[in-house]
Amino acid sequence: MIEIVSESKCIQCNLCVSVCPTNVFDKVEGDIPVIARQSDCQTCFMCELYCPVDALYVSPNSEGSDLVEEELLEENGLLGSYREKIGWGPGRTPITRHPLMLEGRN
């Protein structure tokens, strides 16, 4: 489930509020969005993928809330790691163009 909206990274664009299919976030005037309905999170990772500054972290645990520390995630290169893999963001190539996509039937 969604665990972190990083205060230091978030630029208050509120894209996560828009793209979340289950309406988990609430926009806050003059502040970063809040995780208002965490139990509605379906662990689909879409918010994280759309965040332009890698300020969000979705824990893979879909069954309950995990205690995670932003510093540790940062250290382990996990913030924004999915977006990087998908190849979204400036200077990146979408993974759909990966040469290995030409092989096999995946």
Binding site: I95, L100, N106
Partner: peptide, 9 residues
Amino acid sequence: PRLRVGQTN
């Protein structure tokens, strides 16, 4: 490696 690319998630 191909499996990793085919289904990133």
